[in-house]
Amino acid sequence: MAGLELLSDQGFRIDGRRSHELRKIQCRLGVFKQADGSAYIEQGNTKVLAAVYGPHEVKGSRAKMLQDKVLVNCQYSMATFSTGERKRRPRGDRKSTEMTMHLKQTFDAAIITNLYPRSQIDIYVEVLQSDGGNYCASVNAATLALIDAGIPLKDYVCACSAGFVNDTPIVDISYLEESGGGPELIVTILPKSEQIVFLEQNSRLHEDNLSKVLDVASKGCKDIYAILDRAVRDHVSKVSNVANTTE
């Protein structure tokens, strides 16, 4: 990896993007009929499917039930074929447990939980293809699925990662850029209020540069918001057209 130049002098990254450019995002809502809400998102070569069930009664042990708010239940998993080499990925491994916890924390903060006391919302996320930014794509997909399910949110939840190479922050880093070992900052915000819901950092980054990288990541989140919002509006108008014609 040593020989790779993550950012050329002219400001191009390995895949031809400039430092502030996101990967191409494509998304669809309502991909499944069975689930209450579902969505599919592609961020570059990272492809994620999310399904939402609920709100419904708390299943399993009733001890988990919360009296004042809804229980958010998440499950993150990666497909065996999601990486270059096929690999069995058991559900309960450390990495996916951690990711599950992160997702739960994120959506606990974004869903208006006090509307549904003593009930449960399930969010299932499956990574079909992994090429960096799995958490971000998962959050974005789950947001769309929650919207599709009609669950009240404070705002869209948008996640974006950023790295720092040659004194320049780079947004939405791919697997190749992640594996270089440089610093990585993952930010989830509520774009309208610009509140940070979740923030994670890997590897060391000098304090002086933190705000620069954070700004870039938040800007990325807002760009993602614009894309998600348009996808939602397209979807809604399509659905209402269908409803109109069937009437």
Binding site: Q10, D15, G16, R17, R23, K24, N45, G84, D131, L176
Partner: peptide
């Protein structure tokens, strides 16, 4: 040997310098 797929973004605005 590993098969790797990398994305590549093509653009019009690569400067000629």
């Amino acid at each position: 040997t590993l098969r790797v797929v990398r994305e590549l973004y093509l653009r019009d605005d690569v400067p000629c310098q």
